[in-house]
């Protein structure tokens, strides 16, 4: 293990280390703590300039309720769910199929096709912006929920296929071969042999794509107009304009927007990290 385990050092260093840990964490998360404290302050504190000290009153419940009653935050949150969930479902499904094809079958264009998915995943969004926006306007998908999740699903398919193909490639190929020898149909091999084995990969992709799509801001601006179908990220920005000088409410809304991905992360931590390392670092 590197660095040398702290248990092997002198007691003084060990105590020092354990005392320093929470301090380091506090410094690291200072911006977040500050905004949380702001979100539970009263308007009086904000106006009197007490934004860094201890709150004079705790208004957590009032502030968070105000965000929902005085703005469209609830609708934005719902929109985010309606955009994110289908994006995850579609991209992961398509990637299971494509990843299986690219990992198991040997055909000449398998590698070039795989690289196409990989490359597509790294391109800047701006190179897609004008054509995708124009296509959405032409097909009536502009400013709709479906228009947003269809794009996200297609784009995330690149990353999902990269991950899924590598995951399936690492499975023991003998399993598939022996099933073929037994005369099992190809689609049955996929459903009954491969799918149960890739469950961890599906979990990893689901949490990761959820976070990516939930946190998207660029496409929310490109593919929507007005308030009706905006997700929470774009909504928070709109609230920022609406709640000028009501920093306690903006803070509360921002933190609300962060809750679902944070929950996802804490619930599925192991899968989340496996996904982030692109399967390259195990």
């Amino acid at each position: 293990m590197f660095p040398r385990p702290i248990e092997k050092s002198s007691p003084a260093r060990r105590v020092g280390y354990q005392a320093f840990l929470p301090v380091a964490l506090l410094i690291w998360l200072l911006p977040l703590l500050a905004i949380f404290l702001t979100s539970i302050r009263s308007a009086v504190d904000i106006n009197s300039g007490n934004v860094f000290g201890w709150p004079s009153q705790f208004r957590m419940l009032e502030n968070y309720t105000a965000v929902f009653t005085q703005s469209d935050a609830a609708k934005y949150m719902l929109n985010s769910v309606l955009i994110t969930v289908p994006s995850v479902a579609i991209s992961v499904t398509l990637a299971c199929l494509a990843g299986y094809a690219l990992a198991i079958y040997r055909f000449r264009v398998a590698l070039p096709l795989f690289f196409l998915f990989v490359a597509g995943n790294f391109i800047p969004f701006q190179i897609l912006m004008v054509p995708v926006r124009d296509m959405s306007v032409q097909s009536g998908l502009y400013n709709t929920i479906a228009g947003q999740f269809l794009f996200h699903a297609a784009f995330q398919t690149g990353f999902c296929t990269l991950f899924m193909r590598n995951f399936i490639k690492a499975l023991p190929f003998e399993l598939i071969e022996s099933a073929r020898v037994e005369g099992v149909k190809e689609w049955r091999i996929f459903v009954f042999v491969v799918l149960p084995l890739v469950r961890p990969a599906i979990a990893a992709l689901a949490v990761l794509i959820f976070t990516f799509v939930w946190n998207d801001f660029f496409w929310a601006n490109v593919l929507t107009q007005g308030e009706a179908v905006k997700p929470i990220t774009a909504g928070v920005r709109a609230l920022n304009g609406q709640f000028v000088n009501n920093w306690h409410l903006v803070s509360a809304a921002s933190l609300m927007a962060a809750v679902p991905p944070v929950m996802m992360f804490f619930l599925m931590q192991k899968h989340f990290i496996a996904g982030l390392t692109l399967g390259a670092v195990k």
Binding site: A101, L102, I123, P131, V132, M135, A154, G158
Partner: peptide, 30 residues
């Protein structure tokens, strides 16, 4: 064994082509 992979690939490939690959070239052209 030649046809099956294409059946598995088709949905992802179509989707990815429409929203990612073709728009890249459209942008270059535009």
């Amino acid at each position: 064994l030649t046809v099956t992979p294409w059946v598995f690939l088709a949905p992802a490939l179509c989707f990815f082509a429409i929203y990612v690959v073709i728009p890249i070239f459209e942008s270059l052209w535009l």
